[in-house]
Design a protein around this nucleic acid. Sequence first.
RNA 1: GGCGGCGUAGCCAAGUGGCAAGGCGAAGGUCUGCAAAACCUUUAUUCACGGGUUCGAUUCCCGUCGCCGCCUCCA
Length: 466
Amino acid sequence: MLKLYNTLTNQVEEFKPIEENKVRVYVCGPTVHDFAHIGNFRTFLFADLLRRYLKFKGYQVHHVMNITDVDDKIIRKSVEKGQTLREYTQIYTDYFFEDFDALGAERPEEILRATDHIPEMIEIIKRLSANGHTYQSDGSTYYRINTFTGYGKLSKMNFEGNVTGASERVDSDEYEAKENARDFVLWKAVKPGEPFWETDLGQGRPGWHIECSAMSMKALGETFDIHAGGIDLVFPHHENEIAQSEGATGKPFVHYWVHAEFLMVEGQKMSKSLGNFFTFRDLVEKGYTPRAIRYLLLSAPHHKQLNFTLEGLRGAESTVARLNDFKLRLNEAAVEDGETPATAELIARSLKRFEDAMDDDLNTAEALAAVHDFVRETNSALAQGSLKADDKKALLAAVDRFDSVFSIFGEVKKEMLDSEIQALIDERQAARKAKNFARSDEIRNQLTEMGIILEDTKDGVRWRRK
RNA sequence: GGCGGCGUAGCCAAGUGGCAAGGCGAAGGUCUGCAAAACCUUUAUUCACGGGUUCGAUUCCCGUCGCCGCCUCCA
């Protein structure tokens, strides 16, 4: 039974979908104004892990992610570049999905752009107005939060004690049009030189929070199972989404709110001034592989801060290389017909430990420990030559089962060597047979420089790329 | 100022009121012509520090220090 920590209740709860066997999930996606950084991807890879594990458990998953393609930053940058909103955001949307795909994240069933859903947003704002939750000021429409009694139930914010000493931002000019500092804007009146939509609420553009209420309810219904995102979205974004959706429908919005914790870098928060700010692309340029980045970002449970270090990433490179080589060797293993009871026992034990760990609020560290112990025990059996054909088949199936959730083992596709390299390997084998080790070592060194690592096994020579 | 989280070996990191998972790295060994890979062994008498509760605490409580998050930019 899967259990998830629910931010709404501050408790780990048994997960029960509204509709049996079907799970509806909404994940707050990227704001497409720049390349996404590894902190962003921690959240998106967590969402990917969640959807994959729900599928592992046999659920049919309907996963929706939004693309925020209108906000102050996007408007400013697109104006600077002389591009339309869509031209500008399309560029970074494409880059985002290149990275997303490279990191092995499965595409959600639906990916929705905010600017494609202006009518749905207007509709919700009208419903909120009909329910007495809004007011107009300087052409903008605001949510009057003291009309929503449940406000603060997600973030458990103490609105009495914390305003006075809080940051200056609360009092900045932008909020002068509001009755109360806690009110937030639903629809922003047009400003000169900015893009706008012609609507019943006047010319303007949406506030930040309304898009997620509009798109999630359109795609998943007025009440759905899981809403996920980064921990920093709890307040105000998700709190405001609840106010908008529940204020409009009068129904519970979401059953389970799950949040991915912050990613630290070298023990500090990631910032450009500290020089520890990494986009996915920065790391790939430094020669790190997407699979290692994925492994590292998934290696600690989502509800804890994770300290990302380059030393740790180098370690993850070793780990995923080892896992991939394991899968290759298992595939190549020459076996006789038959099966052994020890293998069935190993698989059953490992899968149970894996599933128990993942059921426990997606404890990836413990689940990966089960995978690593499984790999080590299988390697022992492989080295002893005790595996039979049915064992091998079952072990490979178990690897696929683990990897349906983590996707860290990589592919087994064996590339062809070019004839020059193959000729060198053949020559080296002949030299070894003739005990001409000087020549064979010379060839091996030559191949190493070409990026080919040789391994002499009892079944012949293996090669792999460095 | 209000609210909350974390601090476990060189690095990343799980975990529980009863002798501290896993990965990376390092050292030794087995195998090998030598390597590589794999495997085996070792690598925290101890879980930031100081008190307290308890038969027993890393795990509960209090305090100190450090790091981090939220309090309308934020994954």
